[in-house]
Amino acid sequence: MNLTLKVWRQSGPNATGRIETYEAKEIPSEASFLEMLDIVNTGIIKEGGDPIHFDHDCREGICGSCSLAINGVPHSKESGITTCQVHMRKFREGETIWIEPFRARAFPVIKDLMVDRSAFDRIIAAGGYIDVRTGSAPEANSIPIGKEDADEAFDAATCIGCGACVAACKNASAMLFVGAKAAHLNILPQGHPEKDKRVLALVRQMDAEGFGNCTNHYECEAVCPKEISADVISKLNRDYAAAIVREAVAE
């Protein structure tokens, strides 16, 4: 198939970006979206140009590296998948495709379509863990966990940290990402002792990184490749409210 690409090009973090046009010719419809970009890049390199840079690694939807907004939607309008799982058979012959980075103030562009998502790491470092030293764990079956709780924690834990939720939100809010981590660890009994401390630390770091507030538009849920429910945001709000009250009472 033959397509026209409108791609965001930006040579470095401080450079001015612009949209450039490329023709993608003779693309096999079985190819993945990133393989289509590989083919276009081969052409660019052969003509002496600088290839389009984008983050990618596992190419099977689990590492969370790939991060393209395709026709304005993070990971494309197809639900429940990452950029690398988008296949060309979903596009029409002759179509024009707009390709941009995940945009947010907290995700500065590094080059072209690559962005810096280290803010997510700093949020996890602030409180997204259970503080257990290696070697100090009790016997694994000594804490029974009901299947329902285990499944609910699991659903939240499937987050791949790609940042699509932030890029889709008009406020660039990270509430789905933070809510998912808080839900994963707060639902499990192992996570209860640090529940309040965790939720306060996560939210404070999220605010410090410059992510916006949640105004309940649910765009995050719509683009999440792991289909994490916005219910985790309500749970985060509840846990945060309880924690802040307990913190105030304790002081």
Partner: peptide, 18 residues
């Protein structure tokens, strides 16, 4: 043991065991 303590959500039986 270590992974369970960290909150790794392994599959479980209805009774709560791994």
């Amino acid at each position: 043991d270590q992974c369970v303590a960290q909150g790794v959500p392994f599959a479980r039986e209805y009774g709560g065991a791994l």
